[in-house]
């Protein structure tokens, strides 16, 4: 069985732990063991901490990477922000010996050393490139008949653009993975736009960020989506907790469940909504869960239509 170090970050384990569970179940089903990266900290967040003090940001990021170097596993992130920070930091330190020396002089104080031997991967990018859409489709036992508004999130696309992963251009990889579950990825206006939360904006200027999220929610609703699927717990928080804030502040009435891709794939693999933590969202997911249960129980009786 292949093994990767699972980098949890902050929002998934501390607010949406269903994502942590879903990632482990889904990867285990696909033959990859996700091992805990004991002692990992905040990545630290790419927009806010990088703009407070770049060297601090780089030093803490490099410590997280050294935890996986000790185990010689590549790092798997389940968050776009963590992916951006760890991948950027890893690349910067691999390419700049002077910077690496500087950071290592700090890490030496706690007995760590950045060697630059590991890669940083993102869950969606890894599934697409290492497992493949066909293998993912083969692992689906309960195809989902859902209309999904896919949200790529900014920091999934942007580190990829400059990286050697070969996923640049107009991306369809996330949509392909969503459709491998049986769902339909619906097109909607401004699909590749930001959720509004990043860069330390959500914490500092909540209302302005909610206006950005509101626009996306409007377009997703217009497209008749049953749910939003993201690959970042911070976008997840912005769309889920943010939806309740938008409903209250801007007198809206959104009720769009938000799933991380690992939760969507988990459902399609036959795990229950309860064990994937889908009911733990702020937005009421009971009607969505009912629809999924009726839908997937029907599939067992009638598999070929």
């Amino acid at each position: 069985m292949r093994e990767l170090s699972l980098f949890l970050g902050c929002v998934a384990p501390n607010r949406y732990p269903g994502i942590e569970v879903a990632a482990k179940k889904v990867f285990s089903t696909l033959g990859v063991d996700l091992a805990d990266l004991d002692g990992a900290s905040c990545c630290p967040a790419p927009g806010v901490f990088r703009s407070l003090d770049k060297l601090t940001w780089l030093t803490l990021a490099s410590r997280n990477i050294t935890l996986s170097e000790k185990k010689s596993d590549d790092i798997l992130t389940i968050c776009n922000g963590c992916f951006s920070t760890l991948k950027d930091a890893n690349d910067m330190l691999k390419e700049d010996p002077a910077l690496k020396k500087d950071v290592n002089s700090k890490l030496a104080e706690i007995g760590h050393e950045f060697r630059g031997t590991q890669d940083v991967r993102h869950v969606v990018e890894y599934l697409y490139q290492e497992i493949g859409v066909d293998k993912v489709r083969e692992a689906v036992t309960k195809p989902l008949h859902l209309r999904v508004a896919v949200h790529y999130g900014c920091h999934l696309i942007h580190p990829l653009k400059d990286s050697k992963l070969g996923l640049a251009g107009k991306p369809t990889f996330f949509d392909e993975l969503v459709e491998a579950t049986g769902a339909t990825s619906v097109d909607y206006e401004d699909k590749m736009s930001c959720c509004g939360a990043g860069g330390g904006a959500r914490t500092a200027i909540l209302d302005a960020t909610l206006k950005i999220a509101n626009k996306k929610l409007e377009h997703m609703t217009e497209a008749g989506a049953d749910c939003i699927v993201d690959a970042c717990p911070f976008c997840h928080l912005q769309f889920d907790a943010g939806q309740a804030e938008i409903n209250q502040k801007f007198a809206k009435n959104y009720n769009l469940p938000v799933l991380h891709y690992t939760q969507l794939l988990g459902l399609a693999m036959g795990f229950s909504p309860e064990e994937l933590g889908i009911a733990m969202n702020t937005v009421d997911t009971s009607r969505f869960i009912e629809k999924v249960k009726m839908d997937t129980s029907g599939n067992e009786v009638c598999t070929i239509v």
Partner: peptide, 29 residues
């Protein structure tokens, strides 16, 4: 060590899902 540290709701959810109350991160060490 976390920008978003654990809270009571988060801990409760972790336990409900069969996870340890605190994640296996810096929060546990």
């Amino acid at each position: 060590g976390h920008a978003v540290p654990g809270n009571e709701d988060g801990k409760k959810r972790r336990l409900q899902l069969g996870l340890d109350e605190m994640p296996p991160t810096v929060a546990s060490s």
